[in-house]
Simulated assay, not measured.
Amino acid sequence: MEQIGLERLTGLIAFARAASLGSYTAAARALSVSPSAVSKSVQRLEQHFGLKLFSRTTRSLTLTPEGRDLFERAQRLLREAEGIEQAMVAARAEPAGTLKVTAPLPVGVHILAPQLPRFRAQYPKLDVDLRLGDRYVDLIEEGVDIAIRAGDPGDSRMISRYLAPHRICAFASPEYLRRRGTPQHPDELVGHECVNFRYQSTGQAARWPFRLGEKVLEIAPDAGITIDVSDAVAATLVASGGIGISATYIAAPFVERGELVPLMYELAHDLFPLTALWPESRRGNPNVKAFVAFLGEIFSAPTPWDQCIAQAARSQKPTK
């Protein structure tokens, strides 16, 4: 019986990733190789079998009937290989190898990245591959070990752990407030310069939430500046561009340096939770266990960033 070669296995992996993700570019990102490497692997596989596996267009890949059959078989093979790998990793007590983590860009920049050197100091044999962005990542299909998500995890195949609230508050620079006054209620935002955030995923401008008792008041401000990157919103506020909303973990360093002031903090709203997710197959994985424990340290309750904002808000209130 002919033995399957390494090149053939590489081709099957590249083909399966391209089929599940819909493009060579996405498959290349998941496999940490170039799109041309994925394309060539698939072409060699097609030449070996003498079959056309994809119907290609300029925008997407569509499986042929033969391709669909091979995809189902390749998936079974890869699931078995994944099970073997996880069993071997679980048998090793010490975290080592590479841990793939995905998170939204601002969470990665402001919370995770500054803490990674400390994590690596604890586990020097474990490399961290952190992938940031708003693109939805299928952890199982793309071989990612753990994800941080904002909002409803929405995947019953995953183990999840609540990390912290995604708290939204209004902010402005001290200089802007000296010039234009400090609003004490959302109704007083009328007439102020406003800087708003636009979601890249939907193109919609954010509505500003304020918690009034049991209800949440949402305001659509008349914004002179609208930006689709949260860090750029914060930078504009620091430059006295007006009043805007921000996640507290983004604004906290600016508040600590006195460059931003929290407004109406008692009305700040927890928009949705930040959650960690990992596949059931990683339950006994020492790498994932180590990182989840580390996340528990970073996202302590209350979080350092919310403590910072709350303390700044208290210091603004006049003493009686």
Results as ranks from 00 to 15, higher is better:
M1L: 08
Q3I: 07
Q3H: 10
R8F: 10
T10N: 12
G11S: 09
A18S: 06
G22V: 04
S23A: 12
Y24K: 04
T25C: 10
T25A: 15
A30W: 00
L31M: 11
P35L: 09
V38G: 02
S39R: 13
V42N: 04
R44L: 12
H48P: 04
H48Y: 10
K52F: 02
F54M: 08
S55N: 09
R56M: 10
R56S: 05
T57A: 08
T62F: 13
T62A: 13
E66G: 08
F71D: 03
E72S: 14
E72H: 14
Q75I: 00
L77R: 15
G83A: 07
Q86F: 15
R92A: 07
A93W: 03
A93N: 05
P95W: 05
P95S: 04
T98Q: 13
K100R: 15
V101E: 00
L105R: 15
V107R: 01
G108V: 06
G108N: 05
V109G: 10
Y123K: 02
P124I: 08
L126S: 08
D127Y: 13
R131L: 12
D138K: 11
E142K: 11
A147R: 00
G151P: 03
G151L: 10
D155F: 08
S156V: 09
S160T: 12
R161G: 07
A164F: 10
A164W: 07
F171E: 02
S173G: 02
R178C: 08
R178Y: 03
R178V: 02
E193N: 10
E193L: 14
N196A: 13
Y199D: 03
T202Y: 11
A205C: 06
R207Y: 04
P209V: 02
F210H: 01
F210P: 01
V216L: 12
E218P: 01
A220G: 04
A220M: 11
T226V: 15
T226Y: 04
I227A: 01
D228K: 01
A232E: 00
A232Y: 01
A234G: 00
T236D: 10
I245L: 13
S246I: 03
I250A: 03
E256R: 15
G258W: 09
E259D: 06
V261H: 00
Y265S: 14
L267C: 08
A268Q: 04
L271N: 11
L271P: 01
T275R: 04
S281I: 12
R282L: 07
N285W: 08
A290R: 02
F291T: 00
L295T: 00
A301S: 13
W305A: 01
Q311A: 14
A313D: 01
K317W: 06
T319L: 15
